[in-house]
Design a protein around this nucleic acid. Structure first.
Lengths: 187, 187
DNA sequence: GTCTATAGGAAGATAGAC
DNA sequence: GTCTATCTTCCTATAGAC
């Protein structure tokens, strides 16, 4: 006891992210964030002077970076659209831990907060994901309207499958969604 | 000031439900529940000795009753399956206030609570909704597997559209989902 | 950069008058 | 059955030692 803790930056963000994804912004307490990271409250405040809000903001930025690097950038890359989409499904499986973890975007969204530090970033993430998917489908030969529609549909199915997985206590819905996703988009 | 409040049972449940649907279980405070209903904290405790947890439990039971009466029962009724499905879309539109309100099932679900008073009811609600939809599709002539798959997808799209609507601050995703739902199921 | 200790406030919950 | 007033607990945040 009383031993000094130490934690790597990326691991720190991962642990914080897990708490917010599990219980949402309101449900996350300094105590739980401290327990999950191994850092005492005062240490967390040293790293995040803005407290819980800053932690959630940085976790969100971290997720946006991951998304850009691991999902969006590859989607914009070259190679057959079909192959890029299959690569995306593998990354989604990884990002959501096979359906065991909820989506940060869902867990950080609450009505009654029309403004606030999360509203704009979350909306932007949804928008860019749908847009990037739609662009890929256009490139694959679909009409713009149809592409946009299918992209939005895929994002709905993604988040719906996560809600359903969490609600039923089974990762099956998410896994089934992943399996049908390529056909959903370009089938 | 100091005036006694009074509120009808069904209106009370509606108000409480709105708070939980807006900010989730952890986000709902006795203060906000009191403000929304007009009843002081002590009055809420008189009606719900179990406090916030009992309020959420009863709100969930209330939602289950509404679902059974307004969605499931009509789905099992007679009339052409297509007509029953269109009736369902209208009820969904009403239940979710045109996409402005989140789903209670999503907002009361949090990981880290593998047990607890909400887990079982929520799972049961998801299951019965999917099962009832699947039965209807079977009746309409679809194979059991295909029916089950489409029913699950429809529920995913419903919840995904609500997540997306909330996250983007627009009811458009939910409205678009409602429009395509009949084709989604029996098209 | 982490810790212990604690201040200050909000949250859940209760007692008792009306 | 609703209220005011209060209690206790938990949470956010800070001070200061190491």
């Amino acid at each position: 006891m009383g031993r000094k803790a130490t934690i790597e930056e990326s691991e720190l963000m991962t642990r914080l992210s897990r708490v917010f994804r599990d219980v949402g912004y309101e449900g996350a307490t300094l105590t739980s964030l401290s327990a999950e990271t191994g850092l005492k409250k005062a240490s967390l405040y040293h790293r995040f002077p803005g407290g819980k809000e800053q932690m959630a903001r940085e976790v969100l930025e971290d997720a946006a970076s991951w998304l850009e690097e691991n999902l969006l950038s590859p989607l914009r890359g070259d190679g057959k659209p079909e192959a890029r989409i299959r690569a995306m499904t593998r990354k989604l499986d990884e990002f959501y831990s096979g359906g065991k973890q909820a989506c940060l975007l869902n867990m950080l969204t609450s009505a009654r907060i029309q403004e606030g530090p999360f509203v704009k970033p979350i909306k932007d993430l949804f928008d860019v994901l749908i847009r990037t998917l739609a662009d890929l489908l256009c490139e694959h030969g679909l009409e713009q309207d149809e592409a946009r529609q299918r992209a939005e549909r895929a994002v709905m199915l993604l988040h719906g499958s996560l809600v359903l997985s969490r609600g039923t206590g089974s990762t099956q819905p998410f896994k089934r969604f992943l399996k049908t996703l390529p056909d959903e988009l370009i089938g």
